[in-house]
Write a protein that binds this DNA or RNA. Structure first.
Lengths: 127, 127
DNA sequence: CTTAGCATGCTAAGATATTAGCACTGAGAT
DNA sequence: ATCTCAGTGCTAATATCTTAGCATGCTAAG
């Protein structure tokens, strides 16, 4: 999901978990995995992801805390563009329409008002 | 990217290509792959994806045309929800905001107007 | 001081994915 | 008729991913 490509199944799961939580320890990652493999297995994956340059870690007391090397926003944009291309022919407006359609019931009046403002702002900027 | 998970790197690439084009022949898929492996390799992947139930094929003259078994809309929603969860804490409005921010310059006045209408509609539906 | 718990370093086996190669078939061109 | 091209069926080797296991060090409790 994350960025370009080249990640395997587990690797991708792990990257997603890390982006979802900003950073995570081995135990965090393991706890978030659907059918968690052994502690060792998770550690190995994290090490490999670090070798490949997707992750880095810092020491927090006795344990490692992993975080992504590609900044959050950049990864997010990359993921969005990919969905855009794959499912919306690259059209952001079609994607927004789909989101509104999917989530209309879960959006509060406040949120909708805010979005209306953003759309308006974009229109002003356009001309 | 597509649905739940469990796809390997190439498998995922191929599924994305198929969703992007609705359907595709072996040559189509191979042509769309970044660093295309042999024709045989692509065929093998397609066969495996079909075995796993992600694809099906029909005969078109002498060749196979592959298409996804999971309907387009469902796969699309699944992919969206995944990005939502991973990068937007599940918030659709944050995702919409990011899309507008990313693509503001590429959105036409017509599209923006249309979106404004959709937001308005959602607000009416809400109350 | 010694033990138990929890963390990492390192290594190797096992499972899967990825690729290529060869055999076969059918259609159209010479 | 036969040659060649473009397709599929099938199989096997290679690469990569995924997992587990053992050794080690550090810290806190008994």
């Amino acid at each position: 999901m994350t960025q370009v490509d080249g990640l395997s199944r587990r690797e991708r799961q792990i990257m997603d978990i890390i982006y979802e939580r900003s950073e995570a320890t081995v135990a965090d990652v393991r706890g978030a995995l659907p059918e968690p493999p052994s502690y060792s297995a998770v550690r190995a994956l994290l090490r490999i992801l670090e070798e490949k340059g997707h992750l880095q870690h810092r020491q927090d007391g006795p344990r490692y805390v992993y975080l992504a090397t590609v900044p959050y926003r950049q990864a997010r944009e990359s993921a969005m563009r990919r969905v855009l291309r794959t499912f919306f022919g690259g059209s952001a407006s079609r994607a927004v329409a789909a989101l509104l359609d999917m989530e209309a019931d879960n959006l509060s009046e406040d949120e909708l008002q805010h979005l209306a403002g953003l759309v308006d702002e974009a229109r002003k900027k356009g001309r």
